[in-house]
């Protein structure tokens, strides 16, 4: 129980306040003194995470490649589909885990070069965007 004195238009009121629940610190505003850009402090990540391009890929621009060796579970788009950067275009299973492959740029699916069930190497082309 906390005692507070509140003054409204020169008239003071004594009130008692009971704190029922500790506030979750995650809900309160940061106490950091300086405003910090979002690039420094990441907001909770909502967008899908694009897998990094394999460094040694010989694939040309617009080619979506597998970031690791594994089995193609599904190609999630078809030739002629329009895709935006960040759309999921394929799923690879490796190490008992599905890895989702996202488009890195906007475009139209020009060619699909892998099919479900197929084993692919790291850096292998899955499809081409134009």
């Amino acid at each position: 129980m906390k005692q507070l004195r509140i003054t409204v238009d020169g008239k003071s009121y004594d009130v008692s306040v009971e704190v029922l629940e500790e506030s979750n610190p995650a809900d309160t505003a940061p106490a950091a003194p300086a405003p910090v850009r979002s690039a420094v402090v990441r907001a909770p990540v909502a967008a899908p995470i694009a897998a990094p391009k394999p460094a040694a890929s010989a694939a040309g621009p617009g080619t979506v490649v597998s970031p690791l060796a594994g089995k193609v579970v599904s190609i999630d788009v078809a030739v002629g589909d329009a895709v935006n950067a960040g759309d999921r275009v394929a799923t690879i299973e490796a190490m008992k885990m599905n890895t989702f492959i996202y488009a890195e740029s906007d475009g139209t699916v020009a060619e699909v070069t892998a099919e479900p069930g197929q084993m692919v190497d790291e850096g292998a082309a899955l499809l081409k965007l134009s």
Binding site: A26, V41, P44, I49
Partner: peptide, 13 residues
Amino acid sequence: KRVIAQLVDHGDF
């Protein structure tokens, strides 16, 4: 990263 954002104070990582 979403797990981390929930665990740390103010989502500040």
